[in-house]
Design a protein around this nucleic acid. Structure first.
Lengths: 226, 226
DNA sequence: TATTATTTTTAGACATAGCTAAATTCTATT
DNA sequence: AATAGAATTTAGCTATGTCTAAAAATAATA
């Protein structure tokens, strides 16, 4: 078994790798709220344990073993989030914080029981895919809502779960995963976006629209943003 | 907030205090599987934080503040045990281990939700009382099954939850809390005990009978053991 | 009561994981 | 190509919580 700290680093590396491609010492230290020097020393340790590869002054990359562990933790995290939301009615902006601590101490047996109780789900409450036990994960190719154009209809795929305020904000306009909506207008230069969800209209700031990932309704994959 | 380690010590102190009366450095180090020197140094720290009082070479005792925290953790522990048993069907010999880790990271909000989902219960799956939020706890005055005499009928109140094997053993003969049974015979010098549960008879070793706590059916409080 | 045995404490060390400050290396700009 | 700025690493320190070995205090017994 690995320490909680190691698990947190591996998870962070996976997430940064997915978003930015390259995983720098700095990005890690920021995501984990530690000093850059702390990230360096942990990277060294992970490297010795063959969980990541690392070339000095260049980024870090998960090895197969490191990836496996990080997906196990992410599976814990997302199963817990969904379980709390479904079984105990915990609001979607609170499940992340709870899962963040519990994920490190969840037994495999309990993981299986929750999985079964939920009917072997594939998505967490924010729409993020839940890795399978054997370490496969569905890769989404959705685009930021901010990249849509006026007139387009789309479905919410995933909402970033790192900021509870963001979740409450987009939740208030009903932008949950699988929700269909239409872009009525979008102002240039990162201006506000007017959308229609169900029967009601909302204005969405670009800061939020960046973290809501959607698939446009005609199935087109990626629109140029400007 | 206190560290996991501090919480574990406080909980252990409470439990030893309840069973033995006096809480020695040695008993603590045994219960927590640490060296006596480790217990001493933690006792010093707890004492500085005013969570326990301590006279050198004499025992340790929880202060009001220490008692409060220890009951909070025990509440977490027992609510979790019951929740896992009820909601996810975790067998009663496994819930302890799971709760042991989860109890330290359970939020107050989730505690409340579990409490409500369970209908504000007062006992965990082993029959132990669940402290209330404000820190009151029901004191049981049950006696060890081993102290009963032939012919007496009794009801199971509580089974010690520290040994999964014990729980499986007594579980096999149906000795769950609230179960009524009758002592058919009891051999002297800590001999085996023959009991009848429902329609079936079982033989129970004295080692197990010591950890099954019961109330005899006529309401008498405490029988001399020999 | 004196001595032995047990319990408890002290002293000093180690691992983990964090920090700051300084040195190093890389990158970008002039 | 030289240099300023940013990112990264090293060096050295700190806190927590553990350990072993030795010393001190208490308890048990001859």
């Amino acid at each position: 078994m690995y320490t909680e700290s190691i698990e947190d680093y591996l998870k962070a590396i996976y997430e940064i790798q997915k978003e930015n491609g390259k995983v720098s010492t700095n990005s890690l230290s920021e995501m984990l709220s530690v000093a850059p020097a702390s990230a360096t020393s942990m990277i060294k340790k992970l490297s010795e344990k063959k969980l990541v590869t690392h070339k000095r002054y260049q980024g870090v990359k998960l090895t197969k073993a490191g990836l496996k562990i990080s997906l196990e933790i992410i599976r814990h995290h997302r199963l817990i989030e969904l379980y709390l939301a479904e079984a105990l009615g915990v609001p979607w902006d609170q499940v992340h914080e709870e899962a963040e601590k519990w994920e490190h101490v969840l037994s495999e047996d309990l993981e299986d029981r929750m999985d079964a109780a939920l009917g072997y789900p594939t998505r967490d409450p924010h729409g993020s895919p839940i890795p399978s036990r054997d370490g496969t994960i569905l890769e989404l190719d959705s685009i930021p809502l901010a990249d849509l154009r006026a007139g387009q209809s789309a479905v919410v795929d995933e909402v970033s779960d790192h900021d509870p305020d963001l979740l409450r904000y987009v939740g208030k306009m009903g932008l949950y995963p699988k929700t269909k909506f239409k872009v009525l207008s979008i102002e240039p230069f990162n201006g506000p976006i007017k959308i229609k969800v169900e029967k009601s209209e909302h204005i969405l700031g670009p800061g939020a629209a960046q973290y809501v990932f959607v698939t446009d309704i005609k199935g087109s994959k990626r629109e140029a943003s400007q």
